[in-house]
Simulated assay, not measured.
Amino acid sequence: MRATIVKSVVFTVVTVLATVMLAGTIRNSTPGSTSRYTALFSDATSLNRGDDIRMAGVKVGTVTDVRVHDNRVAGVEFTVQDAVRLPRGTIAQLRFRNLVGQRYISLEPPETSTGGSLPAGHTFGLRETRPALDLTMLFNGFQPLMQFLDPKDVNALSGQIIAVFQGEGATVEGLLSSTASLTSTLAQKDRVIGELIDNLTQVLDTVNGRTDELDRTIVTLQQLVSGLAEDRKTIGDTLDGMGRLTTSVSNLLEEGRRPLKASIGSLGDLSAQLADAEDTLNTFFARLPVKLDRIGRTASYGSWINFYECEITGVIPRPEGYFGDLGAKPVAKRCTA
């Protein structure tokens, strides 16, 4: 029983200590007495409560709250150990902790001390803070290079870029060594790049040889565009007139389609009848001149054929341009029958 009790006590103590250590790690608190400060950032994206406050890479405090300040900037409240002295001119800079997106605030003392320390409760204004590096803009600039790299090389290069731009001690040599695969890939594509440059050179030579023609084309095009711009009102009115004309023609065709269809059908019937009477018509037109000649002779030599004029009409031109009516109206009953 004694051994069992001892083992239980040891297990309980170890469990409690591990739980306390885990809780302290999760809480990410700073031991000892602390003082509160406030920092204003133009952008505090991804900074959360519990993130670190560091000076020279050593954790000296914790972020306690992040909220909107004055409806335009981010207000970050944090604590710093009282044992840490913050000289006047200290800059609060927001940095990336890793590529996952976690951030922390780095307190950067001035290179030359101006004397005195910042009092507890001091507020770091926008002039005393620096936002984090915009990785989106940075990686967009390196995108043409990264598309030739493997995913592992991209991750290594990204880490080196962040370290270099944030001044965390990474060397340019490390950055260049991370781009070695890029250089190899470009070397493998040397033939393709050379052919592309040769083709582009030929195109530029052709364009250069046609400089005069190209200049005339551009000048003519400019004159055409200028003329169209000057006549834009006339062109617009013409297009409106064409639209109205199209509407009128469409209505005319719609209204005349049925009568035209009937006329075409009747014309077909007439053509068929004329085709059936082809022999009769040929005989009639062959004999018509002889008949007309004989009728004319008969009317000239006797009164066997009587003609009666029922109506004569005409016009007389006048200097004013008006054409007056002239003629005789029918009075005989035979003309009105």
Rank of each mutant, 00 (worst) to 15 (best):
R127Y: 12
L239H: 00
R210D: 14
S266Y: 05
F285R: 11
K59A: 14
R2M: 09
L22I: 14
D198Q: 08
L253C: 13
T217L: 08
L133Q: 10
I295C: 03
A163W: 03
E128P: 03
G50K: 05
E254S: 13
L17E: 15
L214I: 10
Y322A: 15
Q81N: 12
P109G: 07
L270P: 01
K261Q: 11
P259R: 12
C310D: 14
G121W: 06
L292H: 09
V73W: 02
V20T: 13
R67L: 10
M146A: 05
L252S: 12
G116W: 10
R294Y: 09
V290R: 07
C335R: 08
E213H: 12
I105Q: 00
C310T: 08
D205A: 14
E320Y: 15
G236V: 03
L288T: 11
V192Q: 06
S303Y: 14
E111A: 05
V9K: 04
L99P: 01
T64Y: 00
A120W: 08
L274Y: 04
R232N: 12
T79K: 01
S266W: 02
L47I: 15
D231A: 12
D237T: 01
G101M: 02
D240T: 00
A132L: 02
I316H: 02
R67I: 11
F11W: 10
L245H: 00
Q147G: 05
D215C: 09
S303W: 09
F148P: 08
S181I: 01
L40Q: 15
T336H: 06
L204V: 11
F307Y: 15
Q81A: 13
T12P: 05
G324I: 15
V315Q: 05
V63Y: 00
E168V: 12
N48H: 10
T238I: 06
R54H: 05
G75T: 04
F11D: 12
V14P: 01
L270I: 13
A83K: 07
E128Q: 06
L157T: 01
R297F: 08
A83W: 03
S266N: 01
T30Q: 11
L281I: 15
R54L: 12
I162L: 15
T283C: 13
P319H: 07
D43K: 14
T62D: 00
